[in-house]
Amino acid sequence: MDTSTIMEQVKVQIAVANAQELLQRMTDKCFKKCIGKPGGTLDNSEQKCIAMCMDRYMDAWNTVSRTYNSRLQRERARM
């Protein structure tokens, strides 16, 4: 196997791992927010709540990422 093939495969595996991590944490958080008492089905209002929660979780993730990134840049500039 040549180096560029290995690098490609590693990149794909990292992307999959990150997606799984996000999926797992998002599921935990939105389950907690939206499912009070688990009923016989996932009802309509619960589905709406989950959909909204997913979007807000992504917003939060992006805000955290942006803030952390600019913090790192500020600290690098200070050195």
């Binding site: 990150n18 991590e21 944490r25 927010k33 939206c34 979007d55 939060a60 993730w61 952390y68």
Partner: peptide, 25 residues
């Protein structure tokens, strides 16, 4: 390491900051 910390901080800060998820942040 960056990504991992973003995951972790999103989770921690979600607990601190997020009330009921609304139509906008």
């Amino acid at each position: 390491r960056f990504q991992q910390l973003v995951h972790q901080m999103t989770e921690v800060c979600w607990e601190k900051c997020m009330d009921k998820p609304g139509p906008k942040l």
